[in-house]
Amino acid sequence: MSRYSRLLLVIMVAIVSGRVMAQEITPTPDPCPTPQISNAAASYYIGLGNALFSRGDFSGAVVAYTCAIEQQPDYAPTYVSRGYAQASLQDNEQAMADYNRAIELDELLTSAYNNRGTLYTRLGNFGLAINDFTLVISLSPEDVTAYHNRAVVHAAEGNYELAIADLEQALAIDADFAPSYAALGAVYSAIAAQQYQQFVELRGDNALLPAGTPIEVLQAVDEGMRTGDYSVWVALQTAAGAE
């Protein structure tokens, strides 16, 4: 695997798994905070957990979701929420257990498959990840996240055409789904890396790229789109008989 490809793989996994915060220690669940309202339903703790999660307090969120689960152990979505919080704490084992438990309780719960798929991706189990995303798509054909996530796994496997197809499908469903544009850009970057690699193989390691390094080309293309300066493309042309 080339340097570019390895870099792209890391980027893909980061995209598919969401932003991950570094945490080393799984928290010991604290006692559940006493609800500040009477007759609080389990959903009180889910609300608490969601708010804590949204501000990056994943440990606090795990505690809150655990309290909700203690109060209502058969409600599958809470396991998904806790699983995601566990995954954000890098506790893959607990996260997987929670996703599996959610699926046991509700085999049609697409969020559980979606999140488990992202976890499989992070763990490098691409086949299982694709299975989960494909299952979500079969259960919910308009699930833009599932197409997006499956595309990223395809990309991580080097199947760029399949990745592009899934990303285009995601954007066909929701043209405002921004992550798919980022992923599409990354996939084209991967294809670019492949092509540059091909150039190096033909010309040798020390050959100069005709329009500069890949980053310089990208910058020049970006600037050219804004200014109309097409000189970067001119640099890529080759005189007849030059090869």
Partner: peptide, 8 residues
């Protein structure tokens, strides 16, 4: 309950 927990 949910929105009270979230809000608090």
């Amino acid at each position: 309950s949910y929105y009270m927990g979230e809000g608090l």
